[in-house]
Design a protein around this nucleic acid. Structure first.
Lengths: 170, 170
DNA sequence: CTTCTATAGTTCTAAAATCGAACTGTCAAA
DNA sequence: TTTGACAGTTCGATTTTAGAACTATAGAAG
């Protein structure tokens, strides 16, 4: 499977992974949410090679997740800022952080706390059902094909995905 | 930066990315949540090379995200099932799916719908504050160093990463 | 008894991605 | 005139991944 195919699969998760599902892209996005905007800022914060950084930024711009905006003429310079589409990645970022906070902290505790301005408290993100507001548990969710379904794969778990001969028997 | 270093960074997101932040691992986890449990199941569903699949499964087991459980003696066979730590990845998976549903669907609509057994309705996942229950917006969240902070990097947003405006920066 | 099939890997080579370091170009300041 | 900051680009070396074949075990088929 190639990256391009991923984005065309009838699976929203696969498509998302096709866009942001690699180490550097995710880390670049972390920096974006931490308000880094410029090439040098990303590079020195992450230690990514300049080559890859340039490539990843281009891809994020192509995907409409970042916008490249001039901040000075003279030597033309641009900064990269999140579009709405990019800001919408926030729940993904929070979910990643929260899992790390829960399962990957050492004895010192969390490196970073999040305070909700609305209520003033440090919080954890909680996922709830948009319809009833109850917290979601994997076990209580049932998936079924939607209008965009097309392949039998990825819609629901087929109990046994037919095996095919791997070698020519001749 | 190497993979191993990532897991030691004082940043929960980096650590999480170090564990699950690559294309195949994420797709394998998708399959896990769709109830795939066996080597052949993953391989044929994803088209991943057997070599990589074996490696990724080993890593997920090492990380305590999957457990390798024998389901038959005779030729010894195992299946891979999510531990609690693995199940806790559910919010990340849902967040990925939801972003794809919002920004990556084609005219046909969503490939997969999620029904909440508790209320019976198809839903979207919503992230709320654990303290006040209000939906979270990136703009309303302030980050500050926690007990596990140690490096100045990644703790909090440096307002401008050593970018001193040398000119009138618009 | 031999062959086929199913399952879960391992091994090998070629191709692709990433790393690391140097190089390009613009303009301001020293 | 030289240096420094910034935003890239280029290129050879290294690491990962792809793709296909090979190994191993055991039941069923013939």
């Amino acid at each position: 499977m190639k990256w391009k195919e991923l984005e065309e699969e009838p699976c929203s998760m696969a498509r998302t992974i096709g866009v942001i599902g690699d180490r550097w892209t995710l880390l670049i996005l972390r920096e974006c949410f931490l308000r880094t905007r410029r090439f040098e800022g990303f590079q020195s914060a992450l230690g990514i090679t300049r080559h890859l950084l340039a490539e990843r930024l281009k891809k994020l711009v192509r995907q409409g997740i970042l916008r490249r905006i001039p901040y000075q003429e003279a030597p033309k310079r641009h900064e990269y800022i999140l579009t709405q589409k990019g800001l919408d990645l926030y729940p993904i970022m929070m979910a990643l952080v929260h899992w790390g906070d829960t399962h990957m902290v050492d004895e010192r505790g969390r490196p970073l706390l999040h305070q909700h301005r609305k209520c003033g408290k440090d919080f954890d993100p909680v996922i709830v059902c948009s319809e009833c507001g109850e917290p979601l548990l994997a076990k209580e969710v049932h998936t079924h094909p939607g209008p965009g379904a097309q392949s039998l794969r990825t819609i629901a778990a087929p109990d046994k995905p037919k095996a095919k001969p791997r070698r020519s028997a001749a």
